[in-house]
Design a protein around this nucleic acid. Structure first.
Length: 402
DNA sequence: TCTGGGGTCCTTTTCCTT
DNA sequence: TCTGAAGGAAAAGGACCC
């Protein structure tokens, strides 16, 4: 019997921050933002003390309040106390500042969350080596073949993992155990925080079918709206639909997937290692920039993105065989342009050159709010021919931002 | 009015070749 | 040389997730 667990850290970013700043417990705290221009228009640095000092000794007055926010970021996480004001994930910080001006605002500290993430994942790997990464705060674990993995249908090992993670990090997590990934993911949502839920196929009708379609990982706002318009509100409604009719409505691949998922069918294995498919860097400007008027600023940002990507390539020991750009204009309309290369590239100057070429195919008549550069078809350096002739071109020719 | 940054995967469109 | 079909690859866009 396959036993798959899905583990989800409880309010991960906020919990990590509350461990660091216990004095914020019980207060509305919002994590997010990014660049925060100060009164003089320059970018304010993280107002908090560096980690070498004892950060929890800071008084509440030393934290920045949301009402001081003037940038264009969004909220990544809000504590329960902040949510009471109607503040929530993905909401613009400016809007949140109106709803809850006294909320404490913390910038996202990815480096710290990554470090904690590595710690809790190391704990899991010690107990159950077949683990799949699903981002910074989630994993799938295959309990089928680990010693004791079948005891109490997986509950025993789940309890052990919870306990060890708490001892190592001080954080709680919620775990769902089921015959496959799809049901395990749904199960982990059912008892939060710090819960364990075990589901079998017999639980499909009583526990999964009453859920709204949106609860399924893979049904987003667009598909949900379409399902609702068709009179399908719950997973039970979906399960009752004729598969051929679903395929007619949603296409072969997605229609089939909807039908199978609603019946709790999911054969995907727990994938222990995955090579990155693409890497990208993008940035939203503090104010909209014009291709001509702000040419220098854009050119500088463009170059910086390419340099960061070149660093990323070194770190992952890969070269890239496609280059692309992404532009978002003042209407929030996004366009992309891509280019396939004959020879994989790895140097910032090459990335800059070829990205500059794709840029020439993009309309640049509107003010821009975002610029991104993306590399795809990644090839491990070890897989390149020994005389690896990755192109090294000096960016001598001008493009529109140069 | 506001809407981050990194990803994956899929569908549709476009372009090229036969 | 023109026209059209067919198929594949590349490009573009979009949905979704954390």
């Amino acid at each position: 019997m396959r036993r798959i667990a899905h583990l989800d850290m409880d309010a991960f970013f906020a919990s990590v921050e509350l461990l660091r700043y216990p004095q914020l417990k019980g207060l509305p705290v919002v994590i997010g933002g990014g660049k925060r221009p100060d009164a003089e228009g320059s970018i304010a640095e993280d107002p908090r003390p560096d980690s070498a000092r004892a950060p929890h000794e800071w008084s509440l007055d030393q934290f920045q309040r949301l009402r001081n926010y003037t940038g264009r970021g969004v909220i990544t996480t809000a504590t329960y106390e902040a949510r009471k004001f109607g503040v929530g994930s993905a909401m613009g910080m400016m809007k949140a500042a109106v709803l809850c001006p006294d909320a404490i605002m913390l910038p996202v500290d990815h480096a710290r969350y990554r470090a904690v993430s590595q710690r809790f994942k190391a704990v899991i790997l010690d107990i159950a080596p077949v683990m799949e990464n699903r981002g910074i705060d989630e994993v799938y674990i295959d309990l089928t073949d680990i010693p004791g993995g079948q005891r109490e249908a997986g509950r025993v090992v789940a309890r052990l993992i919870q306990k060890e993670i708490f001892l190592a990090t001080g954080l709680t997590c919620s775990i769902g155990v089921a015959p496959n990934k799809l049901m395990a993911k749904l199960a982990s949502e059912m008892d939060k925080p710090n819960g364990i839920t075990v589901l079998s196929m017999a639980d499909l009708a009583p526990r999964i079918w009453p859920l709204p379609c949106r609860a399924l990982n893979g049904i987003g706002p667009k598909s949900d709206a379409k399902l609702t318009a068709l009179g399908i509100h719950t997973l039970g409604d979906l399960a009752a639909c004729d598969p051929q009719w679903l395929i007619g409505q949603f296409g072969k691949s997605y229609g089939q997937w909807l039908h199978q998922s609603a019946h709790g069918i999911d054969e995907r294995p727990v994938q222990t290692n995955s090579e990155p498919v693409s890497i990208s860097r993008e940035t939203t400007f503090e104010r909209n920039l014009h291709a001509k008027r702000d040419r220098d600023a854009l050119g500088q940002i463009f170059t910086t993105l390419c340099e960061r990507l070149a660093d990323d390539l070194v770190r992952k020991a890969v070269a890239a065989q496609t280059v692309g750009i992404k532009l978002r204009d003042d209407r929030f309309k996004t366009i992309t342009r891509d280019l396939s290369l004959e020879v994989p590239i790895r140097h910032a100057a090459d990335i800059r050159y070829y990205a500059g070429q794709t840029l020439k195919r993009a309309p640049l008549d509107r003010p821009l709010r975002l610029l991104g550069v993306k590399l795809g078809k990644l090839v491990p350096l070890s897989a390149l021919p020994s005389q690896a002739q990755t192109s090294r071109r000096v960016a001598e020719t001008g493009d529109l931002f140069t």
